[in-house]
């Protein structure tokens, strides 16, 4: 147990809460998806810092699963949801 890693995890956690503003007011749909990807990376960093701070090597496996499945949602979004939609859909050009 070392408190400095937990303090850094505590510093990284409000970055997720701050990035929520971009999800709420992002003009295009890709902005929201990019913010979700930044949340995934922040979560991986928080898990790594917590695993060093709480002496629990199992959390490295959870971070590994997060890193494996990080691209899945974005690739699905680009290939399924965002493709071939018109101008008036999902707030692309017209909100």
């Amino acid at each position: 147990m070392s408190w400095i890693h937990i303090i850094f995890a505590l510093i990284l956690l409000p970055a997720i809460a701050t990035g929520m503003f971009r999800i709420l007011r992002g003009p295009t749909a890709a902005d929201r998806m990019m913010t979700a990807q930044l949340f995934g990376t922040c979560g991986v960093a928080i898990l790594l810092l917590l695993s060093a701070g709480m002496n629990n090597p199992v959390l490295l496996d959870i971070a590994l699963v997060f890193a494996l499945l990080a691209a899945l949602a974005t690739v699905t979004f680009v290939s399924r949801t965002w493709r071939d939609n018109n101008k008036n859909n999902h707030g692309n050009l017209i909100q």
Binding site: M20, R32, T35, G43, I46, L47, L50, L59, D61, F66
Partner: peptide, 24 residues
């Protein structure tokens, strides 16, 4: 669509909460 993206982020925070409650 905004709700779906927020739900993905919510799942990530839920994983952090499970970690914090010693349920890896």
């Amino acid at each position: 669509f905004k709700a779906v993206v927020l739900f993905i982020s919510f799942g990530l925070l839920m994983a952090l909460a499970w970690v914090r409650m010693r349920a890896p």
